[in-house]
């Protein structure tokens, strides 16, 4: 164990002692940091879950072309040829009405409905994956295909998924802004805590300088203090988030079950949770660094 290491251990212990000496205000600080972190982390979790839903549907522009119930095989073959030769199409798949019904049976909650029917209500269809085209042209193409003989109805399937995806993008930006603001707030909270610490320890700092303490030795305990406080705040934030999700999920599960779904909000991945805690610690360190730099400069003999 060398001197450098033992000095760090001492600084770490010193920081813990200072936290313990001011238990009430340390606890409040940690709580403030935790709640401030729980907000953007919670938003991130909810968005992540929404995105999970959106990702189940293809976001590539896709068209479903449903044939008229009474369409003749000749119409169908003509349409297929026409579609396959169209340069705007990336892939064309024919879905016979029986296959569509079989697929529908697998969907939760629908099987009972289908069983009640005595004949297949579904038409034959073509599912078309398009080459990347702008959304306005997608509508025009849908209208164009709708005029072809034998075509009953054309649906641009992915429009809502794309809208959801765009909405998530906006939400993501909002959360990034919120996170940035609250991160600045966290730095400010730590800045102020450390400022008070530096001022209470003014005498000790001056004496230590007179006796030959390096700047690093004087600063180190404050850095640890900021980082430990940030880390503790980060863990409180994660706990708040986990608790909130557990509460929310009680309601969401009940709701989802009525739709025959097992959807629920999932917590952050372990890596993300770790990142939140470490990021909080880093912000605490930054607040301490800024505070110590500002307040030591104007203090005592150099």
């Amino acid at each position: 164990m060398n001197a450098w290491f033992s000095q760090h251990v001492q600084a770490f212990k010193g920081a813990l002692r200072k936290l313990a000496a001011q238990r009430a205000s340390s606890l409040l600080n940690v709580l403030v940091i935790g709640i401030a972190l729980a907000l953007p982390a919670g938003g991130y979790v909810i968005l992540g879950n929404l995105q999970g839903i959106a990702a189940r549907f293809s976001l590539e522009p896709q068209l479903s072309v449903f044939l008229e119930p009474g369409a003749r095989p000749a119409d169908r073959d003509g349409l297929e040829k026409r579609l396959r030769n169209d340069p705007r199409m990336a892939a064309v798949r024919f879905v016979p009405r029986d296959e569509a019904l079989a697929e529908l049976r697998k969907t939760e909650g629908i099987a009972e409905v289908i069983a009640a029917l005595n004949q297949n209500p579904l038409p034959d269809a073509f599912v078309i994956r398009l080459k990347d085209i702008p959304p306005d042209q997608l509508e025009a193409l849908a209208a164009e295909l709708g005029r072809l003989p034998g075509v009953g109805h054309v649906q641009a399937d992915s429009a809502w998924a794309r809208r959801l995806s765009a909405l998530i993008g906006v939400g993501r930006l909002g959360i990034a802004l919120l996170a940035a603001l609250l991160a600045a707030g966290l730095v400010a909270v730590t800045f102020n805590t450390i400022r008070l610490q530096v001022l209470t320890q003014r005498e000790e700092i001056e004496v230590a300088r007179l006796l030959g303490a390096t700047d690093g030795f004087i600063r180190r305990p404050f850095y640890y203090l900021g980082a430990i406080q940030g880390l503790a705040g980060g863990m409180v934030g994660l706990a708040v988030l986990a608790g909130s999700l557990a509460l929310l999920n009680q309601g969401i599960r009940t709701l989802a079950e009525t739709y025959g779904s097992s959807f629920h909000l999932t917590f952050l991945a372990p890596g993300d949770a770790l990142a939140v805690a470490l990021f909080a610690s880093l912000l605490g360190w930054l607040g301490a660094y800024l505070s110590v730099s500002v307040y030591l400069r104007g203090m005592g003999p150099r």
Binding site: M1, A3, W4, S6, Q7, Q10, E203, E204, E206, V207, A208, L210, L211, G212, A213, T214, F217
Partner: peptide
């Protein structure tokens, strides 16, 4: 320039802490 928030021995230990003694 003694520090009154700690014991006599801790005052004497102060300069030793940053001189790198175990």
């Amino acid at each position: 320039k003694l520090l009154y928030d700690r014991s006599v021995i801790d005052n004497v230990l102060l300069p030793l802490a940053f001189s790198g003694f175990a």
